[in-house]
Simulated assay, not measured.
Amino acid sequence: MIDKGYLLGERYRIIDTLGEGGMANVYLAEDIILQRKVAVKILRLDLQNEPQTQARFQREALATSELSHPNIVSVLDVGTDHGLPYMVMEYVDGPNLKEYIQKNSPLDLNEIIRIMDQILSAVALAHKHNVIHRDLKPQNILMDKRGNIKIADFGIAVALNQSSITQTNSVMGSVHYMSPEQTRGGMVTKQSDIYSLGIILYELITGTVPFNGDTPVAIALKHAQEPIPSIRKKDSSVPQALENVVLKATAKDPRDRYATAQEMKADLDSSLDPERADEPVFVPYHCN
């Protein structure tokens, strides 16, 4: 842990701890030159001599710095302080999406689409740059005071051409939102992110994740083997067209999911249209 008041890189004065993670800790700091608050992610002291963790931290900085989008947390600076790598990011003053759902559920359907559209727009840009996030979950999605969404934590994001990394790190991520192919250690693609987006949409609508269990393995098995629980059985006021977006995004076989985040967004944006009121339930073409 870094002490409050410490001047990192002779520029960023540590104010408080925002969060502690497996790879890095995040602090609230003041940029003494520009006199603004920033979030600083610093590699944990006990991991600074692990080459794999160092490389992962550098990948996050590289992946995020290449992605300029209003719904992705901006990287402002990257440096080292006495050999300890750090990354300076814009400070988002607000809850993460998990906290927002827990406090405000049930959400209005139009608000759900507004939130999801921002997430999809950001992921579409990442995918355009061939960056797969691989750990999309509400805890990694921040919301500012005006309701603007900011995706954070590209810590296990990977460029599609880095196939060795895709294989070796593929089982990282949060099991409640993880695609069946990720839990099996298979190749992670853009469709793996699409699956996670479908689970996030499910949680926005229902207030809960579709699968729970006593162990990560039990939850992973449900993702691989069990159908997504019916949203409309819980709440018949949810249009079938909206549930179909969830069902298509979370199809077990990646070939049945949306080809792109843009395609998912277009389908979502028309899901409340009256002309889609009598839409049949989505049925995947490929069966496991």
Rank of each mutant, 00 (worst) to 15 (best):
273 D>C: 07
9 G>E: 01
163 S>F: 05
276 R>G: 05
84 L>Y: 08
71 N>D: 11
11 R>E: 04
22 G>M: 10
193 D>M: 01
30 E>Y: 01
51 P>I: 03
171 V>N: 05
57 F>I: 05
285 Y>T: 14
222 K>C: 02
194 I>T: 08
257 R>A: 03
138 P>R: 01
193 D>F: 08
180 P>D: 13
240 Q>P: 06
258 Y>N: 06
130 N>P: 01
11 R>P: 02
54 Q>V: 15
13 R>T: 15
222 K>F: 06
264 M>R: 01
254 P>R: 01
220 A>V: 08
88 V>H: 04
141 I>L: 05
212 N>L: 09
110 N>H: 15
27 Y>T: 03
191 Q>Y: 07
132 I>T: 10
103 K>R: 14
176 H>K: 13
167 Q>I: 12
210 P>F: 04
262 Q>Y: 13
64 T>N: 11
268 L>H: 05
223 H>A: 05
247 L>D: 05
109 L>F: 14
76 L>Y: 04
60 E>W: 04
22 G>W: 12
126 A>R: 00
88 V>Y: 00
238 V>W: 05
197 L>H: 07
216 P>N: 10
79 G>L: 05
69 H>W: 01
116 M>D: 03
287 C>K: 15
160 L>M: 11
272 L>I: 11
245 V>N: 12
123 V>I: 15
128 K>G: 15
137 K>N: 09
286 H>G: 00
196 S>P: 11
117 D>E: 09
248 K>P: 03
14 I>P: 07
47 L>T: 06
257 R>I: 04
90 E>N: 09
242 L>K: 06
20 E>L: 03
224 A>G: 13
278 D>A: 12
199 I>V: 15
75 V>Y: 02
208 T>W: 12
20 E>H: 10
104 N>C: 02
76 L>W: 01
211 F>W: 00
85 P>T: 12
80 T>Q: 14
161 N>H: 13
199 I>Y: 06
225 Q>V: 11
129 H>W: 09
13 R>S: 14
12 Y>E: 03
219 I>Q: 00
100 Y>P: 03
180 P>K: 12
23 M>E: 00
260 T>R: 03
80 T>N: 10
92 V>I: 14
213 G>H: 13
70 P>Y: 12
165 I>F: 12
216 P>Q: 08
12 Y>N: 02
143 M>K: 09
44 R>Q: 11
263 E>N: 01
260 T>W: 05
217 V>Q: 14
105 S>D: 09
138 P>S: 01
213 G>M: 08
158 V>R: 03
207 G>A: 06
176 H>Y: 15
267 D>E: 14
32 I>Y: 02
140 N>S: 10
23 M>I: 04
215 T>Q: 13
87 M>N: 06
6 Y>T: 15
205 I>T: 09
213 G>L: 14
8 L>W: 11
280 P>N: 02
140 N>D: 13
137 K>S: 07
85 P>F: 09
56 R>L: 13
236 S>A: 15
61 A>V: 02
207 G>L: 11
27 Y>M: 03
186 G>L: 09
17 T>K: 10
155 G>R: 06
256 D>I: 09
98 K>M: 13
